[in-house]
Design a protein around this nucleic acid. Structure first.
Length: 567
RNA sequence: CGGGGCGUAGCGCAGCCUGGCAGCGCACCUGCUUUGGGAGCAGGGUGUCGGAGGUUCGAAUCCUCUCGCCCCGACCA
């Protein structure tokens, strides 16, 4: 491809509303342009990378035995009403009405459509298992779209759905997809991690997220330094710490005045006690009444874990009136001692001796509080995992990293097949709901994540498998006949088996080098009069600092060699 | 949905408070010089100042409404 003929509008400065690195660089590199909030044009360069991701995904899905289909983006409301999600899904579901007054939605995911398809076509266990996937545009009317392709409203997703006669078969496929996803992200050249994930409303043990590790990731991931345990912090379990032996050193309980000191920081500073000696008491309102949740002052409650521990359906922080009514004190002075509510304490609380809690009266706290001696609680794991917390699987410790969720695999069970009547006849002729799994990959997000993970101050550093071109040739001066002759020769020869971009613009060298660094093609071949005097051209890998000079006649072979080695 | 902010040339922004020729940098077009890391000089302005209404002799500037975008929070999973 000739740069001069390509719609490749690079920018020196990113638009002011671009926040994250991948979005800024994709804008600057002329890969994407915004059309509306969370909705983007993909320009030629951007589309090339998207196609590379798609090709890898398609290849591995096919190899794993899945079959590609394409479902409509516009879905009749009936299907969503059948599954119950027309009412459950909320405002993220963009609804439309056609000229006849019929209701539709733009598909944010396709369980309903695929289940409808399969229930019509599959009758017997002999036709199972089945794994169908598509690569298609989805629409979710996000409250706050942001971060470019990372969290758009319209986005390209690979979604696969599998159908099984037995649990064993569904679990086999889950493992099969787990392996396929690992191969996909490996082939993309990304540093990623599969982690145990929240199963959410659907429940069940089986859910993994695939995260590309990057400091800018939206999710926090806990992984063990010693074994292979890894989980989203939303879910990560923590090995309970040892309760300190003997409470003999416990000093007598005492009440102190703490006028206006409510937060952990304020109380800690006022009483000159480290936050790890404070016990934070939060009052929650659940469908089973008010409860108190305790966590050490330097830790955070994880509401999802709390919800699971309580086995309640709804959970939210109690309002001021409920707090005052139940504790006898304004918000900020609640404590577990003599509290007439069920008390659930994180394991971290058990380690506190001579701690500080609210006194359940305004402007007062209790000091020298010792769990067990001064209050009773049910001890549970309800805090967010942090660096150096104990691994739940071994004796190691956890570390927290940030990740971008690019894939999610899920065992669905019979949620959709049951509500929508997708069943089959088993060997005994008995009708049973089909067991399902679903497996998603964000295509655009994967491309964006690759940039978050691979860039420097000058621009993108594409992992070779996702690069829009394999190689970029930079003729330094297009008005020099020899430069152009050599460049064109290399371009033609290399172009036989590589995707090559030649920057044939009549621009100064500096401009071309800056753009080359920005768009991040893995290998750059610079052809200039200076080196041509020695019969040489320059090869440079985008990711490395060094350059190598090779003879003109060896350039194509040398380039092929570098590309093969994964330049 | 609550709070805050922004909207002026393709991009980044100033001007608004205190009403009086619509500006700056980059990009773009022409010419000359230059030519290995975002060149120099000279010339060129490409604009519905988001939109509508109002106040005023006069509105980018003040007022009202409205649309879009961004940030924080809430919501969602």
């Amino acid at each position: 491809m000739r740069f001069s003929r390509m719609l490749l509008p690079t920018l020196k400065e990113p638009p002011s509303d671009a926040e994250v690195v991948s979005q800024r660089l994709m804008m600057r590199a002329g890969m994407i342009r915004k059309v509306a909030a969370g909705i983007y044009n993909l320009l030629p360069l951007g589309l090339k990378t998207i196609r590379k991701v798609e090709a890898i995904v398609r290849d591995e899905m096919d190899l794993a035995g899945a079959q590609e289909v394409l479902m409509p983006m516009v879905v009749p409301s009936e299907l969503w009403k059948e599954s119950g999600r027309w009412d459950e899904y909320g405002k993220e579901l963009l609804r439309l009405v056609d000229r006849h007054g019929r209701e539709f939605c733009l598909g944010p995911t396709h369980e309903e459509v695929i289940t409808d398809l399969v229930r019509r076509e599959v009758r017997s266990y002999r036709e199972l298992p089945l794994n169908l996937y598509q690569i298609q545009t989805k629409f979710r009317d996000e409250i706050r779209p942001r971060f470019g392709l990372m969290r758009g409203r319209e986005f390209i997703m690979k979604d696969a759905y599998s159908f099984h006669a037995t649990d064993e078969s569904a679990e086999d496929e889950y493992r099969n997809m787990h392996a396929a996803y690992s191969r996909i992200f490996e082939r993309c050249g990304l540093d990623f991690k599969a982690v145990e994930a929240e199963t959410g409303a659907i429940g069940g043990r089986f859910s993994h997220e695939f995260h590309v590790l990057a400091d800018t990731g939206e999710d926090a991931i806990a992984s063990c330094r010693s074994c292979d345990y890894a989980a989203n912090v939303e879910r990560a379990e923590i090995r309970p710490g040892e309760a300190p032996g003997g409470s003999s050193e416990g000093k007598p309980l005492e009440r102190v005045n703490t006028p206006g000191k409510r937060s952990v920081e304020e109380v800690s500073a006022y009483l000159k006690v480290g936050p790890e000696r404070l016990i934070k008491t939060l009052i929650y309102e659940t469908d089973r009444g008010l409860i108190a949740a305790l966590v050490r002052g330097d830790r955070e409650i994880n509401e999802m874990k709390l919800k699971r521990a309580l086995e309640c359906a709804t959970l939210r922080l109690a309002d001021e009136a409920s707090v005052t009514a139940s504790t006898g004190a304004p918000v900020g002075f609640a404590g577990p001692v003599n509290l007439k509510l069920p008390v659930y304490a994180d394991f971290s609380v058990r380690e506190v001796r001579n701690g500080v809690t609210g006194a359940n009266e305004a402007d007062a706290h209790l000091i020298n509080v010792s769990p067990e001696r001064d209050f009773r609680a049910v001890y549970v794991d309800i805090r967010n995992a942090a660096d150096n917390d104990g691994c739940p699987r071994c004796n190691g410790v956890l570390e927290i990293k940030r990740g971008i969720e690019v894939g999610h695999i899920f065992k669905l069970g019979v949620k959709y097949s049951y509500s929508m009547g997708a069943s089959f006849l088993d060997e005994a002729g008995k009708e049973r709901p089909i067991i399902m799994g679903c497996y998603g990959i964000g295509i655009g997000r994967t491309a964006a994540a690759a940039i978050e993970q691979n860039h420097d101050a000058a621009g993108i550093i594409w992992p070779a498998p996702l690069a829009p071109f394999d190689c970029e040739i930079v003729p330094v001066n297009v008005n020099d006949a020899q430069t152009m002759r050599v460049s064109t020769e290399i371009y033609d020869a290399l172009g036989k088996d590589c995707d090559v971009l030649i920057d044939d613009r009549d621009e100064r060298a500096g401009v071309k080098f800056k753009d080359a660094d920005l768009i991040g093609i893995p290998l750059r071949i610079t052809v200039g009069e200076r080196n041509l005097k020695q019969g040489q051209v320059e090869l440079k890998e985008r990711k490395g600092a060094g350059v190598s000079l090779v003879k003109v006649e060896d350039a194509v072979e040398a380039a092929r060699g570098m590309l093969k080695r994964g330049a």
